[in-house]
Each structure stands twice: as C-alpha cells, then as structure tokens.
Amino acid sequence: MRVICNGIPKSGTHALLKAVQLLGVTDTDHEHLAYSAPLSDKHILIIRNPRDVLISWCRWTYKQVTQGFIIGAMPEFVQHYNDYKPWLTDENTLVIRFEDLIGDDGVTIQQIATYLDVPYLTDAYANLPGLTRTWTGNYSDWTEHWTQDIEDAWQAVGGANVEQDYGYVSSF
C-alpha cells in the first residue's frame, strides 16, 4: 500500500510522514500536490492554521520574519491554499489537522491507523516530535508577529476567507 502524505508547504507534511512511518508503513511519499484529480493511492492531507503556516513559510524561506516578508508572501500563499482546497471534500482523502496530530495524545495517529487499516502502535505518538528535516525545535505562532498592518493586508488578500474555508477562525 502506497501512502501519499500531502499538504501545503510548512503545514506539517514531514510530521505526517513520520506519523505514518511510525505505524510501520514504509511505502510513503511526501508531497505538496495541489488538487488536480482524485488519487488512487491512500491520500492524507494535513492542514494547519493558515496564519501559522505563513509565519513558518517566512521563517523557512526568508530566515527572518518581518512585516514586509509576511505581507509580500501573502498573495502567493493565499493562492496555494485555494489550489489545495478541493482536497478538503475529496472522498478518498483523509484530512487531518496539524494541531491535532501534535496535541491530541495520539488520537489522530489512531485515526490514521484506522484509515490505513494498520494497527495503532502505542509508541507512535511519543516518538512523533523532532527528528524531521524541517523541525526547528519550536512551532511557529502567528500571534508573536501579527501587527495591524499585517492584519489589514491579510484581510485585503482574502486570508480570512482561506481560514474560514479550512475551518479556522482567528481574530487579531
């Protein structure tokens, strides 16, 4: 069984890949696939609060998080979210939240195991943090960087709509 671990860059795809592998599934692909057509393989999409993803993207891409980098990245970023949106309703796709994967004491990993029809291994959740290519030691938090100028730009490019489409509600 091949499993495609998919998500917008910086949404937790490496953590998802590790979670699947911790369940003993080694035929895995790490992808950033915008929607084009349903997939025949097992497909898991990880989503994350768009504001946190934007901050993580800036940390990864620019190595510095400033108002200018955040605002400048927004148009392309919002388009990425719109390109992935059809996966949310694809009947062959399991959609999970990054926040649940890292914070629900293994419930999401159990959900993944059920979807993949593999046993849940009790040490999977305990071994999830760290040791991935993109792990920096702390999770990005948009509230540490958001300003009124960033909020105004976010609203102008449709960021609030993206949050709503993906089931997130953030207020500044």
Rank of each mutant, 00 (worst) to 15 (best):
R59E: 15
F98K: 00
N127Q: 12
R133V: 03
T89N: 13
R59G: 13
G106W: 07
E76N: 15
A126L: 06
V157H: 00
W87I: 12
H43Q: 03
H32I: 09
Q111V: 07
G130Q: 10
T134E: 14
N82E: 14
A34T: 14
I44R: 00
W57T: 14
D104E: 04
E151Y: 10
G158W: 01
H43N: 01
R133K: 07
Y115F: 14
H30K: 10
L121P: 01
G106L: 02
P119H: 03
T143V: 08
R59F: 06
I71E: 11
D141W: 01
D105G: 03
V53D: 06
T147S: 07
A34Q: 15
R51L: 10
F77K: 11
W135Q: 13
L33D: 05
E144F: 05
N138W: 12
T114E: 08
T147W: 04
R97W: 09
T93S: 02
T61N: 15
A124G: 09
D152F: 04
L45Q: 07
N92P: 02
Y62M: 09
N138P: 06
D90N: 11
D117I: 06
L54F: 00
D90L: 08
K42R: 07
G106V: 02
E144T: 10
R48C: 04
D52L: 05
A73E: 10
A126P: 00
K63V: 00
L121G: 02
T66P: 02
G106I: 01
T122S: 09
L101Y: 03
D83M: 11
H43M: 06
T89Q: 13
L45W: 03
K85Q: 12
S36N: 15
V107G: 05
V95W: 04
Y81H: 06
R97C: 10
W135D: 14
A73W: 09
A73Q: 06
I102W: 01
H80N: 13
E144I: 08
Y81P: 09
M74K: 07
W57F: 13
V65L: 03
I102M: 07
F77D: 07
T143H: 08
H43L: 00
I96W: 02
G130C: 01
T61W: 14
F98Q: 01
I70N: 04
W87A: 09
I70R: 00
A160G: 05
A156I: 13
L94C: 10
V157C: 01
Y120F: 13
W146P: 01
P119W: 02
L121K: 12
N127E: 10
R97L: 10
R59L: 14
I46S: 03
G103K: 06
T114K: 11
D123C: 06
S40K: 15
A37L: 15
W142P: 01
A126G: 12
I96N: 02
Y62F: 15
I71M: 08
P119M: 01
F98M: 05
N49E: 07
A124V: 03
V78Y: 09
V118F: 06
P38W: 13
L128H: 03
T136M: 05
R48D: 01
W135S: 13
E99R: 07
S40T: 15
F69S: 15
N138V: 05
Y115C: 04
E31Y: 00
G137L: 00
M74N: 02
F69Q: 14
A160C: 06
A37N: 14
Q79N: 15
T132Q: 02
L94G: 05
I47A: 03
L33A: 08
A160P: 04
Y35K: 06
Y62S: 12
Y125N: 08
